[in-house]
Amino acid sequence: MNEPQDSHIRNLDARSLRGLAHPLRMQLLYALRFGGPATASQLAEKLGESSGATSYHLRQLAVHGFIEDAPEHGKGRERWWKAVHKGLRFDDALLTDTSPDVRGAAEMVLHEVATTQTRDLSTWLGNRQRWPEEWNRTWTMSSATLRLTPELTQELVEKMHALVDTYRDRAVGGDDANTAQVRIHTHAFPLTTE
């Protein structure tokens, strides 16, 4: 789950990982990162949860520095929340930490990321007919199987991330009617050939 170097990327450590390692917390953070500021009630409705559960987990995310108040959106008593960082950087050393709790939390986070990515793709496949034809011509769900060493695989991953980074600077503002948030998933892992 390596992300490009950026001051808006949160590095996960053992303490922050424990604060994130819950499926609902990850869904809440994801919703705030990609949907913008929201209240616990709005998030509860969106995610099919109780507002009590979302309120509790939002407070836990705030304690660990993943989200913060968004008072510029609030009116009255409702508390608005926003994501602090644009992304997360996962240190593979968390998977080999001496603490079984840290290793378990790291595994849970990785599996939740994989589930979220699968859900993103399934949502697109289920809703693509609602999008204009030009979007239906520009998506991909491709795969390639290469025979590589770990070093060549790392080089490929770094080059893919560098390429994606070149498009961050070219991103179009939100007021262009022909833009959408485009999700890019990259996976690189060895296959068992038995």
Rank of each mutant, 00 (worst) to 15 (best):
E3L: 02
P4Q: 10
Q5S: 13
S7D: 13
I9P: 00
R10T: 00
R10E: 01
L12Y: 01
R15N: 14
R15M: 08
L20S: 03
L20H: 05
A21G: 02
A21E: 01
A21V: 08
A21W: 01
L24W: 07
R25Y: 09
M26W: 05
Q27E: 15
L29Q: 01
A31N: 07
L32A: 07
G35F: 05
T39K: 03
A40F: 11
Q42G: 14
A44Y: 13
K46P: 13
L47D: 06
L47H: 03
G48V: 13
G48D: 09
G48A: 08
G48N: 10
E49I: 05
E49Y: 10
S51W: 11
G52V: 15
A53D: 11
S55F: 12
H57W: 11
L58N: 02
R59S: 14
R59I: 14
Q60H: 11
Q60P: 01
Q60D: 04
V63Y: 15
H73E: 13
G74I: 06
K75W: 08
R77I: 03
R79T: 15
V84T: 04
V84L: 00
K86N: 01
L88R: 00
R89P: 00
F90C: 02
D92K: 04
A93Y: 05
A93C: 06
L94Q: 12
L94I: 13
L94Y: 09
T96F: 07
D97M: 08
D97G: 10
P100W: 08
D101E: 09
V102S: 01
R103V: 12
G104H: 09
A105E: 00
A105N: 03
A106I: 04
E107A: 15
V109E: 00
H111S: 12
E112H: 11
A114V: 12
T116E: 07
Q117D: 06
Q117A: 09
T118R: 15
